[in-house]
Design a protein around this nucleic acid. Structure first.
Lengths: 238, 238
DNA sequence: CTATTGGCACCTAGGTGTTAAATT
DNA sequence: AATTTAACACCTAGGTGCCAATAG
């Protein structure tokens, strides 16, 4: 089975940012003219990403690999329908500092340096790659299977590099995050529990909180929960 | 998410057979010389397939799509490491008859004809395709996500055709099966329940039956069941 | 009558934050 | 003291055959 993992080295490393990369396959001529075609990459669920970002997004990393929440989903426009493309995401360190969370002030403080030079860049290529522009544009491109890990031995689903030419990079401020092995800011924990369906078991049954903030049905899929349409009696037929 | 479904039209249609197809991508010259390279495709779990075949394999088809059990897994040898290949499976009708199961004699009897001419051939391309010979040979190629359906509108994961040249076909007698909407032969039901981990709920708790016949650990993965290692008390921590 | 469908209980498989213990 | 790990209860998601109901 294909499994997607993104290596992420370092401990409390503040400010990693996600980049979506797009590469044309066997590009006939590398030149600026076809790049000027106006490819657009639009982050889906950006409202939720922004809510996390306003608090200070944290992503858990484990040895076995942990998914990101929210996950990266993009809509791509302006591709040439018949051209084949690779799409990938990358995690880029924003600085070389190490950070520590200071609880009483609810802030991240610089706590040293990290040597990023030893980190080999690891791209996660979308498993549908390569694929025609037409197919990529027809659907939302989802990286929800990607996992972050601090296990340096694990390089599943990665490649070393993309072609030097014909690669366009799109980055999104709101996907900036800090990697942690345990959540530091309780507001982050709360928002994750509220929005990630897999954390439903930790939701406060008293408050109906933000369950109705369905800004992005792709991220909050409660409306698909069969509990809401099933016969509440739970009786089997006679 | 990619989902694999194989259309299978007709009702009790006896004797479909699985074929594994292998196609070279952008083959420089179509000729017999490179085909003579001695590619081998070996069916994994053939012992279990044979046990079903001896009884008369039945596969359930549903509108939503049903997986095959056993699933098709092959080991491929003799590919050119750097050449790119597609690998696919196909379901091929063995005859044009329709069959009916006669319970008292435990046999399938001819019960009419089926017009196969209206059935468009539907190949299921392995999702890893295209892939280098080296990569294909390094691991077992598994089609366990393939689903059989009788919904003619559903053609997910299929293509119309492969290139006319440079395609090799490998077929396996023991993968012959009859499609049904409900199992006819109770021996088949029993063997499915015994060997398919997802049917464990129907196993007879009294007999330990064939749970120890682990000829093929890939098909019978009971040894991974956490039930056997978990604390049986089921107590939570204080 | 036979063949098919849909709901179901019971599984596998694996994604959550929590917690206590281990590590540094 | 801060960080990381591992086991866990509780979820989502979906693969089984069974059985009653429906379709043909």
């Amino acid at each position: 089975m294909k499994e997607a993992k993104l290596l992420f080295v370092g401990r409390l490393m503040k400010e990693a940012e996600l980049e979506v990369k797009l590469a044309e396959e066997k590009r006939p001529k590398a030149g600026a003219e076809s790049r000027a075609g106006g490819v657009q990459v639009e982050l889906q669920g950006s409202e939720l990403w922004r809510r996390f970002h306003d608090i200070g997004t944290e992503m858990i990393i484990t040895k076995a690999g942990r998914r990101m929440f929210p996950s990266v989903r993009v809509k791509v426009k302006g591709l040439e329908p018949l051209q084949q493309y690779y799409i990938a995401i990358d995690v880029v360190p924003v600085d070389s500092k190490r950070y520590r969370y200071v609880y009483h002030s609810s802030q991240w403080m610089v706590a040293g340096n990290t040597d990023h030079s030893c980190i080999t860049p690891r791209l996660y290529i979308h498993p549908d790659s390569p694929c025609s522009g037409e197919t990529w544009m027809r659907q939302i491109v989802s990286f929800d299977r990607v996992k972050l890990t601090n296990n340096e031995m694990d390089d599943k689903g990665h490649i070393q590099s993309l072609p030097a030419e014909g690669v366009q990079t799109f980055s999104f401020q709101e996907t900036e995050f800090t990697t942690v092995t345990a959540y530091q800011n309780q507001q982050i924990t709360k928002l994750k529990i509220d929005r990630n369906p897999f954390a439903k078991g930790f939701r406060d049954p008293g408050r109906n909180s933000s369950s109705f903030h369905l800004e992005d049905p792709l991220e909050s899929q409660d409306f698909l929960n069969p509990t809401y349409v099933k016969d509440p009696s739970g009786n089997a037929r006679p």
